[in-house]
Design a binder for these strands. Structure first.
Length: 705
RNA sequence: CGCGAGAUAGAGCAGCGGUAGCUCGUCGGGCUCAUAACCCGAAGGUCACAGGUUCGAUCCCUGUUCUCGCUACCA
């Protein structure tokens, strides 16, 4: 199909923290490149994005910092928006889901589905914090882990041993927000019948997108569809969000994942009165740029919503990228293991394109990739600067030295094979880069551009105009050759500016200024031409496009990462000016200490069968960071116990140790291994674990009482 | 556990049925217009492991191992 217009969306960043370079590499930079390219092709394209400002984590953060949710999103919306603007991410609009237009749009969307009788109403019991007056997601219930005894396990998972839990399993459950004991309360929600769209989605994706979508995206969708879809609640109990537009829905808001993608629509509405052209006309190409964690929402849930509503175009493609690691480790916002865009901009002023280059050249297009500062330095210094920057500089310097600062003519009578080959390379580069971008292969596209500069260097080297200038007796003939060489090098430089423009817009701009051409030269249709610079046209003096990244800058950045890591969680939050130690936050810390448990009788204690055992074998459990599988000699039997202590002990160090075991704890399967018992551990204030063992060797299986 | 994606020279990636390729790094040479830069050459890989299909497999099939995601913060 011939598309008349393009609508490009980039995932709405959650206004709960700043953006880091992983966000850029995964989503915003590829989207921006794609859009800049489309604009250069003079295609009708709109690029929409905005802050996602709803959802429980924002209310929690607000509560912790003692401010309103609005304060939280205002603060981060500004930081995020500025970071994008400074990096040259060229949204046509950067909106926010807290705007009225978005509330109206998402409510209207909901109402339409409601009036069509689509939603199923269901009542269920949810945990409720009576002190704070809010319903609690599993994550916000804290209690003692039934598996490893960690007193601060979450309702969905124990961080200590990695077991996945449900709130019912926690011993002494308490609210993460107030420490109140959560109670169950009935609540009603509206469910979207995803299952009714299963067949249609299979047809659309599994059959229709087989060879179009990236393998990671396609595979993920197929996996979801094969395992069957369930109705999904589209409302939540909260006061922060878009109110459910129904009379009996006090205290209910739309589920963030219902309202967030609709944010793309509202942003488009805010941008233009012609918004419906982009959302409803069949000949619009809708492309969602996202990271891999968002695949199901953009490929399954949102399309199902659009289909259910009717009248909307569906995404033509969802080129999700994988993740970018930093210095070999996963990005973690809570541990502050990330390179924040706002900080990069401060540390490397006027170096946006250096980052854009590295992130694109090393983009996680097919698998997770690693960002290291050393690699950043290498790529900037030896590719961007040495190949591209240096070529451009050589062309300018030589032109000023050998051609009097003016664009020399091209003499047809002395054209060489090398000249013609270079012209062919220039024309071919356009074709290659175009094909790459259309297929979302931005890494390859950028490589092909640098490769063109590489060819330019070789051509210059082989032509060696500086040598030709040294033989005055052949002056007339040689000057023609020199002219041709530099004419072509300069036309090549102009072509590089056009091709680079979507990727490195700041650089393309600088190049235009140096060549004294208007920005219109950057129109894509001009790529491949070798008459972009007029003969005899005087050009500006040479000036370097890029500077090198010094060794000490690399060291500084790596040290900064490690230093910030130590302060872990609070580092980023403490930069918030207002609320450093609100009463609320202090209070919370006190309550984190283990709470005294109620008195029990001797009979309660007698229910426990505590025994001594010796660790015979210990090995790491696969696919679990924190679990060790232990074989214990219990005297009369050998038992398998899975224990969440892998972060504290190496398997080989604990073999032979005697330990105390809760022998009659109900068996529990973890990561497919049945654990029959639990090892007792003391936990220090710093979180360190210590075995509770007999001081002298006891018989295996002897009772502890 | 299950499902999905990945594993190819020191690093980063491409190839996906017919003698293993690119970029960076390393080593040697050339050039000197240029940001100690550019150009040429070389070394460096039993294509994760084990089976199978095939005349032939890095590529197809089966099994295994490891990494990442689906699972908090998070693209």
């Amino acid at each position: 199909m011939e598309f008349k217009r393009y609508l490009v969306t980039a995932a709405l960043p959650y206004a709960n923290g700043p953006v880091h370079i992983g966000h850029l590499a995964g989503c915003y930079l590829p989207a921006d490149i794609y859009v800049r390219y489309q604009r250069a092709k003079k295609r009708d394209v709109k690029f929409v994005c905005g802050s996602d400002e709803h959802g429980v984590p924002i209310t929690i953060r607000a509560m912790k910092e003692g401010i309103t949710p609005q304060d939280v999103v205002d603060k981060y919306n500004t930081i995020i928006k500025d970071s994008f603007a400074d990096m040259g991410i060229s949204f046509d609009i950067y909106s926010r889901t807290s705007k009225q237009i978005h509330h109206d749009t998402s409510q209207a969307f909901f109402t339409k589905l409601y009036n069509d009788g689509l939603f199923q109403e269901r009542e269920s019991e949810q945990y409720y914090d009576e002190a704070k007056g809010i319903f609690l997601a599993d994550r916000y219930i804290i209690g003692t882990c039934p598996v490893c005894g960690n007193p601060n396990a979450y309702g969905d998972q124990c961080e200590n041993c990695g077991s996945s839990l449900s709130p019912e399993q926690l011993l002494n459950p308490r609210s993460a927000l107030s420490s109140a004991i959560p109670v169950k309360r009935k609540t009603k929600h509206w469910y979207f019948p995803l299952n009714q769209y299963e067949e249609w989605l299979k047809e659309w994706i599994v059959v229709g997108k087989k060879d179009e979508w990236k393998p990671n995206v396609y595979g993920q969708c197929k996996s979801w569809l094969d395992s069957g879809l369930q109705p999904r609640a589209m409302t939540r109990d909260s006061t922060w969000g878009v109110p459910v537009p129904l009379p009996d829905a006090e205290g209910k808001v739309l589920y963030v994942w219902f309202d967030a993608p609709i944010g793309y629509i509202s942003a488009t509405k805010e941008l233009t009165n012609q918004w419906a052209d982009y959302w409803c006309k069949e000949d619009t190409k809708l492309v969602h740029f996202i990271g891999k964690d968002n695949i199901v929402f953009h490929c399954i849930i949102f399309p199902a919503m659009l289909k259910a509503h009717g009248g909307f175009v569906l995404p033509e493609n969802v080129p999700a990228n994988e993740f970018l690691n930093i210095e070999g480790e996963k990005v973690s916002t809570s541990r502050n293991w990330a390179v924040w865009v706002d900080e990069y901009l401060k540390d490397f002023p006027d170096q946006q394109d250096a980052l854009r280059y590295t992130l694109c050249a090393n983009a996680p297009e097919t698998k997770d990739n690693d960002f290291t500062w050393k690699d950043f330095q290498d790529r900037v210094n030896s590719e961007l600067s040495a190949i591209l920057g240096n070529f451009e500089n050589r062309a300018f310097v030589l032109m000023h030295k050998l051609c009097k600062g003016r664009v020399p003519p091209l003499h047809a009578d002395v054209m060489s094979d090398a000249d013609n080959a270079l012209i062919a390379d220039i024309k071919n580069a356009k074709v290659l880069v175009e094909a790459d971008i259309e297929r979302y292969k931005f890494r390859d596209a950028l490589f092909n551009i640098i490769d063109l500069a590489r060819k330019g260097n070789k051509y210059l080297q082989d032509s060696a105009p500086w040598s030709l200038a040294k033989t005055p007796e052949l002056q007339l003939e040689n000057q023609k050759k020199i002219d041709n060489c530099l004419h072509l090098c300069l036309q090549l430089t102009a072509n590089l500016a056009i091709l680079l423009n979507p990727f490195l817009p700041f650089t393309a701009n600088k190049m235009c200024k140096k060549m004294k051409v208007v920005e219109r030269m950057l129109d894509w249709e001009n790529a491949g031409r070798i008459d972009l610079l007029k003969v005899n046209y005087p050009l500006n003096a040479p000036a370097l496009l890029f500077r090198k990244i010094e060794d000490d800058e690399v060291t500084t950045q790596v040290e900064k990462l490690r230093a910030n890591l130590k302060n872990a969680t609070s580092a980023k939050m403490e930069q918030a000016p207002k609320q450093e130690s609100t009463p609320e936050a202090t209070q919370e810390k006190v309550q984190e200490a283990p709470v005294a448990k109620p008195e029990i009788s001797i009979d309660d204690f007698a229910k426990m069968d505590l025994r001594v055992g010796t660790i015979l074998k210990a090995e790491k459990v696969e696919k679990a960071d924190k679990l060790l599988k232990l074989e214990l000699d219990m005297g009369t039997e050998i038992r398998t116990v899975v224990s969440g202590i892998a972060l504290h002990f190496k398997p080989e160090d604990i073999i032979g140790k005697q330990v105390t075991v809760v022998a009659n704890l109900a068996p529990r399967k973890m990561r497919g291994i049945e654990s029959r018992g639990m090892i007792l551990m003391a936990q220090n204030a710093d979180g360190r674990l210590i075995f509770v063992s007999p001081l002298e060797k006891a018989d295996n299986g002897s009772e502890v009482r």
